[in-house]
Design a binder for these strands. Structure first.
Lengths: 126, 126
DNA sequence: CAGCATCCCCAGAGATACTG
DNA sequence: CAGTATCTCTGGGGATGCTG
């Protein structure tokens, strides 16, 4: 149950901790930039700049910020090649790949229901 | 491809439009409150207040805002019972249910990798 | 009870610039 | 090329109060 952070009973103290942690992680990851990064990486290894080009409209800052967060949570691996100029590459880890499956689902869903949604919007906006 | 909003070639004008729309929809939906609402609704029908209780920490404003957005995109159906006091119920539509499948995936993923993630965080924070 | 409007404020996002 | 830091400012989001 990710929707709840806390439960009432003190007996469930560790469940509560797990819930609260789960919710925290969910909140980290359930944001568009993080998910777009995961989607963009896919099975490839990409450099910082390549990612930046790949993801329309993301700023330098948002990209680093989200990459750090994903790295911290163990979803992406960051490898630095000490060349000059520097070359930094990002890859999805196994947990990252696993999450990517469901992100693919979301992307597929978006495509599949484009029509529905567009129509629904027109109805609603009237 | 949700990561790109626009493509270069003018020949792909309608693909471009579809991409840009897809990205817009993706950005709408890929935020924690929207996803938590979808998860909370599940197969049930819930009233506004029930949803508010169900989702730890969501504000009145965020809840209405996201519900409107989801309604506009045709993911939830809003039914008003003209009683007094008013009773407003929300249910997932078929597209909403379909998306919920993948959201369930994300929640499952979170639970499954809690350990990995917690460990990774400890490593990173050192 | 649910919705909308208003006010207000601070975190978050962009822009810019410097370093390894 | 990638990362970090600083500054600025906007708009997201909370709080409150009124209406149907």
């Amino acid at each position: 149950m990710v929707t709840k952070q806390f439960r009432g009973s003190p007996k469930e103290a560790d469940l509560t901790r797990a819930d609260s942690l789960a919710r925290e992680i969910f909140s980290d990851i359930a944001n568009k930039w993080a998910l777009l990064i995961i989607e963009a990486l896919g099975e490839r290894t990409l450099r910082f700049g390549e990612l930046r080009n790949e993801i329309e409209g993301i700023s330098h800052k948002m990209l680093t910020q989200n990459l750090r967060m994903l790295e911290r949570n163990g979803l992406v691996e960051r490898s630095v090649h000490p060349t000059v100029p520097p070359r930094v590459e990002y890859t999805l880890t196994e947990p990252g790949q696993a999450l990517r499956e469901t992100v693919n689902g979301m992307c597929g869903w978006t495509g599949q229901y484009l029509g529905h949604i567009e129509a629904s919007r027109r109805r609603f906006d009237a």
